[in-house]
């Protein structure tokens, strides 16, 4: 498990870079490092399906960021500013929230089963009867497409809504030349 800890440290370092670096393209690339580290961590915790999806999604996300930043600007003019009075109130709220969050996490982690030995109350049944009931050798597929198919339907609805939203926002309003392409 030592490789997992190395990955987690790399992830946290890349997250700090992504948040604090001045060039936004570099920030997007650092975010990509976090995402690909997450993909490798998924492989280490025996979740190959998640790793495949995460890699594809991460490539698309970095491409989207690069497309938007190359079309606009990639210099973050807000990084090197002095601390302004406007920032004081959000900082205090954030500090208060971190303390509250820490207390709740401390309580919650005591209830959580230790890392490496999950409770598996529902999953035990899926593991026992999943293949016989659904015919899927991949039990993750049997859960998303059969036992919890309504979740996947909801996901498809959210995905459709988001795609419609993106097309609506990105569409040019003067639609003279692309009249035949959309609507």
């Amino acid at each position: 498990m030592i490789e997992l800890y190395v990955l987690l440290v790399a992830m946290l370092a890349a997250a700090i870079v992504a948040i604090e670096v001045k060039d936004l393209l570099a920030a997007a690339v650092a975010m990509g490092i976090v995402g690909f580290s997450v993909a490798i961590a998924f492989i280490l915790v025996q979740a190959p399906d998640l790793a495949i999806v995460q890699i594809v999604v991460e490539i698309l996300a970095v491409v989207f960021f690069a497309a938007v930043l190359l079309r606009t600007t990639h210099r973050d003019s807000t990084v090197s500013r002095r601390i302004t009075p406007v920032m004081v109130f959000p900082s205090v709220v954030f500090g208060f929230f971190v303390v509250l969050f820490g207390v709740i996490v401390a309580i919650a982690l005591r209830e959580l089963p230790a890392f490496g030995s999950p409770a598996m109350r529902v999953a035990g049944e899926y593991l026992a009867i999943g293949m016989e009931q659904t015919g899927a050798a991949n039990l993750v597929a049997s859960v998303i497409l059969d036992f919890r198919a309504y979740d996947t339907l909801g996901e498809a609805v959210v995905l459709f809504t988001a795609v419609v939203g993106v097309l609506t926002v990105v569409r040019q309003l003067g639609r003279k030349e692309d009249k035949g392409r959309e609507e």
């Binding site: 399906d49 999953a123 593991l127 999943g130 993750v140 859960v143 979740d151 996901e155």
Partner: peptide, 10 residues
């Protein structure tokens, strides 16, 4: 556990 994996996939 396959259940959290299925939820995270969506």
């Amino acid at each position: 556990d396959p259940l959290p994996q299925a939820l995270v996939l969506t």
